[in-house]
Each structure stands twice: as C-alpha cells, then as structure tokens.
Design a binder for these strands. Structure first.
Length: 259
DNA sequence: TCAGTTGTTTATAT
DNA sequence: AATATAAACAACTG
C-alpha cells in the first residue's frame, strides 16, 4: 500500500534486514520486474556487495551497495517480505536478495513499479527523473514558494511528483479534507492563510502517518478511516461524503466542509 | 461480466 | 510551457 508513509516503513524494514549485509545472490524470479537491466546483470552487479543505509525520496526506495544503487518502486501493490517471517516464496515475489541470514523479497502483484539498477549516483538521478522535494522534508518556505509558481487544481499539484514527492491519491484526499480545501480549488484562489494551513496539514498528516502503522484504517476521525464505506459520512460534520472522479482517480470529499 | 484498485508514463488536448 | 485527461500497464477482488 505504498505512498510516502508505507515506503518509509519499507525503508526501515530494509535497513533492519539488509543494511550492512553482503549479498550472496540476487534471484530474479520475474525478469520483467527489472526495468533497465537484465537479470544476470543485476546479480553480477550486486553479488558480493554490502548494502549501506537505505534512503527514501518520495515513493522511491534507494538502496546503495558500495557503488551501485538498487532503486525500488512499489507501484500500487508492492511489498517487502523477510524470509524468517514467511519461509515460502509467494507467486508474486518478483525478486529475492539472498543473504547468509535470510532473504529479502520484493513482492508485487500488479507489477506496476519495479526495480532498477543505477551504476552510480548520476545514473540514479536520471532514473528517478525530475522529482520535487520530499513531501515530509520540504520546508514551509520552499513549499509556499513552489505553490506560488504553480497553476491549476490543488489536488493535481499535491499528487504531481515533480511538485512534491510522496503524496498519492489517498493522502491527497486526507490532507485536503483535514485542511478543508476542495480538491478542485485553483491554487490561484488560495489566500495566504489557506496556503499556510495546507502546508501545516500536509506535514502533520505525514508525520502521524509515518509513525503509525496501518494509519489508513486505524486512525479514528480521519477521512481514510471511513473512505470507501457505503454511505460514509464526514467524520467532522456527518454530511454524506461525495465521491467523484478527478483525473481518473477516485476522490472523496466533504461537500460541506470543503468549500 | 463488470467495475474498481494506494502509481507512473504516454499521447492528446487545451 | 504548463496543465488536464484518458488510456495503458497487470493482476487480481467483489
């Protein structure tokens, strides 16, 4: 379930199991999941290398291995699995990093996303493309500055990875609902107080989310707690929520609270 | 059978 | 040049 908070969870998981460990082999179980190299090339590049501390930028997990960097993107259905917790490989396990003490598997049912190998930091930048600042890392000043240069709808901006990196469909709805901003509101129409509220809310939602596993469902009083339930009502004012399609994505909002 | 799904890219239109 | 939209990608689930 990967947006920024989930990928942060994967980063910690990778750090726990793979950082400081030497790769014995890379078993590519589905060659199509490696997007920019052949399966043997990935094995050859990483075998015998030791992983350092993983980093995260937006929804990308970046795993340096003394020289080459393994790039992991989770799409909609990606996951990491540690072999001690689940001994058998699953049919959606697409790649396994094999260590002496176990194996870390990249699972992805739908195969959106995948794994890339960068030979160095320069190649890494080319592969992840023109990403904006990480949504949890961006300063208020930079966020407001970027917002002032942006036109169009506010939800589209939040979800644009070149604007800020890490916010997806569910988080965008959550932030806008908490900040009481209609997702179709034009950025030009937002006054200074509303822009400041948007930043504060974005930051607060992300902070809570990265610290709380399963926040999407467990966080009482949040939009995502009731999202998708038939007849769902706004947790604040009890007005029935609207469900609309916006740029091909399902959007939930409260017609009473949000403008 | 049909609609829907937390992401990204591409083509096309505005 | 930016922004908006739909479709495609793939593999399910209800």
């Amino acid at each position: 379930m990967p947006e920024l908070p989930e990928v942060e969870t994967y980063r910690r998981f990778f750090a726990e199991h793979a950082a400081g460990r030497t790769v014995r082999s890379v078993d590519v179980l589905d060659p199509a999941i490696v997007r920019n190299e052949t399966a043997p090339a990935v094995d050859l590049a990483l075998r015998g290398h030791r992983f350092g501390e993983p980093r995260r930028h937006g929804k990308w997990l970046l795993c340096p291995a003394s020289g080459p960097v393994l790039l992991v993107h989770f799409g909609m259905t990606g996951d990491l699995v540690w072999s001690r917790q689940e001994p058998e490989r699953h049919r959606h396990d697409r790649l396994a990093l094999v260590f002496d003490h176990g194996e870390l598997r990249y699972r992805n049912m739908r195969k959106l996303g995948g794994v890339w190998l960068a030979r160095d930091e320069a190649e890494l930048k080319d592969l992840i493309g023109d990403l904006g600042p990480d949504a949890l890392d961006v300063s208020r000043r930079e966020f407001l500055d970027r917002l002032s240069r942006r036109r169009g709808g506010v939800k589209a901006a939040l979800m644009d990875q070149r604007f800020v990196a890490g916010v997806g469909n569910l988080l965008a709805d959550e932030v806008l609902w908490q900040a009481r901003i209609h997702p179709r509101r034009r950025i030009d129409d937002l006054d200074a107080a509303t822009r400041a509220r948007l930043f504060r809310t974005l930051h607060r939602v992300l902070r809570v989310a990265v610290d709380e596993f399963d926040y999407l469902e467990s966080r009482m009083g949040w939009l995502n707690h009731v999202r998708g339930e038939p007849g769902a009502r706004c947790p604040r004012c009890r007005t029935p929520l609207s469900r609309v399609t916006f740029a091909g994505r399902t959007t939930y909002l409260c017609p009473s609270c949000q403008r």
